[in-house]
Design a protein around this nucleic acid. Structure first.
Lengths: 202, 202
DNA sequence: TTATCACTTGATTGATCATTCAATCAAGCT
DNA sequence: AGCTTGATTGAATGATCAATCAAGTGATAA
């Protein structure tokens, strides 16, 4: 058994896919960076696409630990946790000079006709993210109008994050990202003020 | 002078880039579909990337005629023009079975380190789109709070469109798109209701 | 008539791509 | 010791890639 080699391939491929995309990463790139030989890679994976599947499964299982846990421990207010998560993407954009955005979003748009397994894993990664946000909204349910579709609002927050990252990367400017997040904040504030108005009325 | 050949190359390459992406479109693909020989292509373009530049310049110049004019003539209310534009992307998603999203968004995320000319053209395409939306918002200025940053709101609408298209394509389901647009509609309605409340107060 | 010039043809090049495979190795089991 | 099995090595394969270029075409003008 050699889980070490398999894991090393996945970690290396993940870095390269995030950095250069799937199509622009050659198997030779993965081999040279991971110091592993082609025979070993093809011993564990039938082909390049199966490496991608491995990466997406790996990332899916690490979202909780890598992405959410650090922010959950730093922020407790559920609404602020959402904006803390968005701020994490902001920091990543700035520290990588706009090279890294959302890795799943990049792949989702790069792979125009992905095979069902890949597409399903991309969707699963989005779903996990959305479910985490939905949990925050549920925790803040009393600060939102009672008829709020919290699942749809969580999807919408994912949408704003992805679009904001895309624009910031295209313009190589954090301005669009900040203004987009400010707009989202305004929307949520408006929802919250509706609740207060209703409370006064009753 | 043979603008016909040059244009044919650009139109063919545009179709292929929208359909399969830039990296997955080979020069041979462009040649076989356009019935043009490699020498002719390289007579007009120094290389593949220059074809991409030509496509982006061409599309930038056609946004008004191809994208906006049909909707402007079908809808007159400025706010409904915005949602009419979004509905155009919705129709395109459905009629292409989620193959076509926003062509500029796809390329923006596919090209991780584009050269300055390409990056500038991607940004110019986004800017043109945003400016058109901003024009609608200016025309509806009296229905928005007076302190509204209409440029930022236009950027935000682009963001929602791009994110909504991304999710619909990933899930191969129009549901996320529709719910995202509904959320945006709610936000704009909330802004409009603020104006009415202010009017009553005065 | 002849020279010029923009354009076209398509075989060819060398690089790079994902993938294969015969061989060797190391460790455990009998 | 001998046998088995999973893991590793790295040269080799054939396909495909972007790009090149010498030879040709046809229209225009001197």
């Amino acid at each position: 058994m050699s889980p070490d080699t398999r894991t090393k391939i996945i970690m290396t491929a993940m870095e390269l896919f995030w950095d250069k995309g799937y199509g622009s990463t050659s198997v030779a790139d993965i081999l040279s960076r991971s110091q592993i030989h082609s025979g070993s890679l093809y011993h564990f994976f039938p082909g390049k696409q199966d490496v991608l599947v491995g990466v997406l499964e790996f990332y899916r299982d690490k979202i909780e630990e890598w992405l959410l846990a650090p922010i959950w421990s730093a922020v407790t207010d559920p609404i602020e946790r959402i904006f803390g998560l968005l701020n994490g993407y902001r920091t990543q954009l700035l520290t990588t000079d706009f090279a890294y955005g959302c890795p799943i979003g990049n792949l989702a748009l790069e792979l125009h006709e992905p095979d069902p397994k890949v597409r399903q894993l991309l969707a699963a990664n989005f779903t996990n993210w959305t479910t985490a946000i939905e949990g925050c909204l549920d925790a803040a349910a009393e600060r939102l109008p009672p008829n709020t579709d919290r699942r749809a609002l969580a999807e919408y927050i994912l949408t704003v994050m992805e679009g904001a990252v895309m624009q910031a990367r295209s313009f190589r400017d954090i301005g669009p990202f900040d203004r987009n997040v400010a707009m989202l904040r305004q929307h949520i504030d408006l929802l919250a003020s509706q609740v207060r108005a209703e409370f006064v009325k009753v």
